[in-house]
C-alpha cells in the first residue's frame, strides 16, 4: 500500500476517534444560554436542561458556604429578576460582588429559585462602559458583559 494511503487511514482513525470524543463531550456538557424571560417560558424544561443565565448581581446573602443572591436583567425596558442559590464547590470569584455582571450555570429549582453550580464574574481587567453610556453617569462604573 502506498505510504500516503497508510497515512490517510491512520489519520482517519485518529480524526474519527477525536470526533467521537468531541461529540460525547458536547452532549455531556452542553449548556443553554437563556435570558430570565426565556427561562420563565420554558416551564418544567428549565428544571431538566442545564442553563446559563447572566445579569447584574444585586443583594448578596452569605450564609456559610451557601450564597444567595438576586440577579437583575434589563430586557425590553423591563427589569427582570431571578433569585439564585449557589451551592457549588469552587470558591466564588473575587470579582463576584454587588453590581458585577455574572453568569450562573445550573438548573431551575421547583421553588423557582435557580440552583447554580458554577458562577463566573466579569474579569477584573475588563470593566468598561457599554457603548453609548456617558462617563460620569451612574451606570458608567458598572462592568459589562460581552
Amino acid at each position: 500500500m502506498h505510504p500516503y494511503a497508510k497515512f490517510g487511514i491512520l489519520i482517519l482513525i485518529i480524526v474519527a476517534t477525536l470526533g467521537w470524543l468531541a461529540m460525547e463531550g458536547v452532549s455531556e456538557t452542553k449548556t443553554y444560554y437563556k435570558t430570565i424571560e426565556e427561562m420563565s417560558a420554558m416551564g418544567n424544561e428549565a428544571q431538566v436542561k442545564r442553563l446559563r443565565v447572566g445579569g447584574d448581581v444585586e443583594v448578596i446573602e452569605r450564609n456559610g458556604q451557601q450564597v444567595k443572591f438576586r440577579m437583575i436583567q434589563k430586557e425590553n425596558g423591563k427589569n427582570l429578576t431571578l433569585n439564585v442559590i449557589y451551592n457549588g464547590k469552587d470558591p466564588l470569584p473575587d470579582t463576584f460582588r454587588i453590581g458585577a455582571q455574572c453568569l450562573a450555570d445550573g438548573k431551575m429549582g421547583t421553588d423557582g429559585v435557580f440552583q447554580a453550580s458554577r458562577i463566573q464574574a466579569k474579569c477584573a481587567s475588563k470593566y468598561e462602559a457599554k457603548p453609548g453610556v456617558k462617563p460620569g453617569s451612574s451606570s458608567y462604573a458598572k462592568p459589562t458583559t460581552s
Binding site: Y33, G54, P93, T95, L103, Q120, A121, K122, C123, S125, K126, E128, A129, K130, P131, T144, T145, S146
Partner: peptide, 8 residues
C-alpha cells in the same frame, strides 16, 4: 461571552 472580554 467571556469573563475576560473587553466591553462590547
Amino acid at each position: 461571552s467571556s469573563v475576560h472580554a473587553f466591553a462590547q
